Structures are given as C-alpha cells and as structure tokens.
Simulated assay, not measured.
Amino acid sequence: MAAYQVVILPVLLILILISSAIKISESARTFTIINDCKETIWPAVTPGGNFNGGGFVLKQGQSVVYTAPVGWSGRIWGRTGCNFDRNGNGTCQTGSCGTSLKCGASGKTPATLAEFTLTGTDFYDVSLVDGFNLPLVVTPINGRGNCSIAGCDGDLRTECPAELAVRANGKIIGCRSACDVFDTDEYCCRGIYGNSVTCQATYYSKKFKQACPGAYSYAYDDPTSIFTCSGTDYVVTFCSTRGQPVCTYHNNKLVCSGSRGLKLSIGRWWTMIFILSVASFFPLL
C-alpha cells in the first residue's frame, strides 16, 4: 500500500499543478492603464465593453484598472488635444474615433496602437503601422513564457520627416505612416507587395524602427515586434520608457515588473511535490 502511495501522490500533485496552470491561463487579464505624459490624454479601446465603454480621460499621473476575459481581441491607443462636453461629445486632434468620448470604432490615423489577442497564450504588440501620436509601452507582469516588454518609448514627433508630420498650433502633434501619406502598394504592403517576401522595410519604416525597436514599423515586421505570454497582467503606459518599473495588483497583492511573481509559486509547488514524495517513501524503509 505504501508503494502505491509513492507513485500516486506525486502524480496527483502534478495534475493539481497542471490544473492550476490551466486556470491561470484561462482567467481574466488585468489591464492597468497609466498616463505618464505631461498632458491630459483620452485613452480609447475597441472593443470597449470591458473598458468603460471604450473611452475615458486620464490626467497627468492618473491610472485606471480594468479586466478583459480570455477571448478578447482588441486595441488600445491614446487621444490627444480633445475637448468633450458633459455629454461626452467632442473632437480630438489625434486618435479620434468620431465625436464621442466612448469609442465604438478604430481611431483616426496617426495613432500609436497597443494590440492584444487573449488566448491560452496571449499575443500582443505595439504598432506604428497607423502612424505615431504618443509613446506607448506594454509591460506584462506575472506571466509565463517570453513575456517581453513591447513598445515605442521614443518620441517620433521630434524626429518625424516633414512630409509625414501632422501639425497643429505651430507644433508637430503626430507622425503619419508612409502608407497613409503616399498610398502606394510598396508602402502599404498590398498587391505584389502583399507578402513578407516582397514587402520589406523602407526608408520611412526604418526611421520608425530606429526610434522604436520594440514596435511594429510596417505590416510584416513580425519577428522583432510581436510577443507572447501566458496568464499575464498588462500595464499599458503612455509616455514611459521600456525600462521604467511598473506595478499592478494581482490577487489583492502589489506585483511589480521584474518580480518573479507566480514563478516562485510554481517553484514552491515542485518543492512540495518532492517533499511529499520523499515522505511517502519512508514507510517502505
């Protein structure tokens, strides 16, 4: 009977561990959205049902927390220079999704985008394919896998080629993509350029990549720009750097980037399996 326990007990614990890991990957993801800019911004999300209807205001230094279920696929971006009335009607200089505070459609270019597909293994990136209006960083916390920090922490408004620049009140407020400005197959990766072999980096996408190596610079910039992570929380920070520590709450505990988080918990599971296995072996001696 004791020999039977030696085999069964570790197996049961391994099954419990696997079950816990599956539950982690299937749980809702926590999104902490932070405004580190020196100005008020109006973040937008589509689809926005889990994010206050898709639009809200964040003053300098403010943050909000939302959750999204596994299966959610969408994008987050910032709007600038907005003016909304008490009914949520108004306009924005960049990133506008119409005349409403709460977005039901994609934003007007140029806009820096954070894109997510939440599955057992999440896919996420920061994209400049639709141009640039704000620095934007996505930091996964508590996840398992590659879990790299994605983002554009350079400010392309100061380096934007003149032919791509969007200006208001005498200053550059955004940088359009070459596709948006010139509308050619080569820049838009369509027609004979509609695949990863023929659609290559251009002068303009290289400028974007140089300023933001952790972001998509053109449509087929996949190898260095799309990341994966499982069971993670996300911190989406505007006007931050990829090296800046950020924190989120997980199971009512403050967890910050750089911490080992759940990896330590999993390590303790394996330690427990080993100890119980040894303990169950001693009755045979």
Rank of each mutant, 00 (worst) to 15 (best):
G131S: 07
T232P: 05
S73K: 13
N195V: 14
G98N: 05
I149S: 07
K209H: 12
T112C: 08
S27C: 06
V64E: 10
K209R: 12
K207G: 07
V126D: 00
K207W: 07
T271S: 08
D125N: 14
F227S: 03
R86S: 15
C179F: 01
D130H: 03
T228E: 12
N133Q: 02
Q62G: 07
K209C: 08
G49W: 06
K59D: 15
V197L: 09
P213Q: 05
V278S: 10
G61E: 09
V138N: 04
V235Q: 02
C92Y: 05
A3L: 15
I172G: 02
S27N: 12
Y66Q: 04
T46F: 06
S265N: 13
E163Q: 10
S196G: 08
D130K: 01
I8N: 12
I22F: 09
M1R: 14
T271Y: 13
Y193A: 07
S257I: 03
V278F: 15
A114G: 10
V197K: 14
C160E: 06
A21K: 05
L15P: 05
S217I: 03
R29Y: 07
T202P: 02
G55L: 05
G74I: 02
L276F: 11
Y66W: 13
G145R: 05
P47T: 01
L101V: 02
Q93G: 04
I149W: 01
G151L: 00
Y234F: 15
K206I: 03
Q5N: 06
I18G: 05
I192C: 08
P47Y: 03
S73P: 04
Y234L: 11
V181L: 10
A68F: 04
A162S: 12
G98V: 04
E163A: 14
S27D: 10
V236R: 01
F281S: 09
I275D: 01
G174H: 02
K171H: 09
V65M: 07
T232N: 03
D130W: 04
G143L: 05
N252Q: 13
V64C: 09
C239L: 10
G170C: 03
L264M: 11
T158D: 10
K38N: 09
K207Y: 06
S19W: 12
E159A: 15
L136N: 02
N87D: 13
S205V: 07
G54H: 01
Y66S: 06
V278G: 14
S73Y: 06
T99Q: 09
A2N: 14
T224W: 13
V45N: 00
C160Y: 05
C247Y: 07
T99A: 08
K253N: 13
G90M: 15
D122L: 07
N146E: 15
